[in-house]
């Protein structure tokens, strides 16, 4: 009797071990050997460190290299303050315009059928595929002294190029796709049935938009606005062409960073740059949060 019990116990142990082996073998089939895994992960971490984390650290290290007082003194320079103000103004204008344009374009594309729709979708992507410098040059060609509207503008004493309107226009053009791109797939997926239901229940066009359409796309709108804003504040190429680099007047933050750097004012340059870097970090966090909300929205519509 005792022998038998002992047997059955000793049998179960190798049995369990055999099962563990089998499980390990199955795992090995599915994944790479441990060494390969370590190498791949190490490569990824190294790459990220050198190309993403290191520059970010350098920006802040340089900004604070002469101490925290020098950092804030650099930011308090009138030139720096003017650049920050201009950047905020331009971002507000272009995000506002693109919010309206993007909503209208996405609405038209997602909810209606019309000839030339595919062409319009392609056109919306144009600012992404054209080099920003070219985008800026287009505005110079249109509004410059030798441009198509140049003489008319001069006659009426309207300043577009080398002034706020030009910078805002160039920025708006470059950042146009963000809101529309965020909304088109979302609105297409949601279709028009909820709007039809609202109208058949007696809602007016405006009531339908504010009570049904907008709440359904609000996370998408915020997502588009966030990315649009990040790009608007950081835009360099197009703005550089139309700005004229007038100190204290038409220099945005990215332009000022370049100028200060070229003048060997490293602390000032990196202090401004650190603000842009912080904007990027905040954008990144907000983006992650918004994406979670967007996913929930998709899930809800699946059921």
């Amino acid at each position: 009797m005792t022998m038998q019990i002992a047997d059955s116990v000793s049998l179960s142990a190798p049995d369990a071990r055999a099962r563990a082996h089998a499980a390990a073998a199955r795992d090995n089939l599915r994944t790479e050997p441990r060494a390969v895994r370590i190498v791949i992960i190490a490569l990824a971490v190294l790459f990220l460190s050198v190309f993403v984390v290191l520059p970010l650290v350098v920006v802040f290290a340089q900004a604070f290299s002469k101490g925290i007082l020098a950092y804030f003194a650099a930011l308090a320079e009138p030139e720096a303050l003017a650049a920050i103000k201009l950047t905020l103004l331009v971002a507000a204008i272009s995000v506002g315009l693109n919010l309206v344009f993007g909503l209208v374009a996405a609405w038209a594309i997602a909810k209606f059928e019309f000839p030339g729709k595919t062409f319009l979708i392609t056109l919306i992507d144009l600012p992404f595929s054209v080099s920003p410098v070219i985008s800026g040059l287009v505005f110079v060609l249109l509004f410059g002294a030798q441009g198509y509207f140049g003489s008319w503008l001069r006659d009426h004493d309207i300043q577009i190029l080398f002034a706020v309107p030009g910078i805002a226009l160039a920025t708006t053009f470059v950042t146009f796709p963000f809101v529309a791109r965020a909304l088109i797939p979302l609105m297409q997926e949601q279709g028009t049935q909820e709007e039809e239901a609202a109208i058949s229940l007696g809602a007016s066009g405006l009531q339908t938009f504010f009570r049904v359409t907008l709440p359904n796309i609000k996370w998408g709108v915020l997502y588009g606005v966030l990315l649009c804003n990040a790009r608007a504040m950081g835009e360099f190429g197009a703005v550089s062409v139309v700005s004229g680099h007038i100190r204290g007047e038409t220099n945005t933050m990215p332009l000022l960073v370049e100028i200060l750097y070229n003048e060997y004012q490293f602390v000032a340059a990196f202090a401004i740059a650190s603000l842009l870097a912080m904007l990027a970090l905040i954008t990144l966090i907000a983006k992650t949060v918004l994406e979670r909300h967007l996913d929930e929205g998709h899930d809800a519509s699946d059921h």
Partner: peptide, 28 residues
């Protein structure tokens, strides 16, 4: 459609997904 006063029930219901059941019924 707004003036006709017709109740329409859609094939896939078209309930307002961001509203509670109560608010859906109260919408009209």
């Amino acid at each position: 459609a707004r003036e006709r006063h017709v109740g329409f029930v859609f094939q896939h219901y078209a309930l307002f997904r961001h509203m509670s059941v109560f608010e859906n019924v109260a919408f009209g």
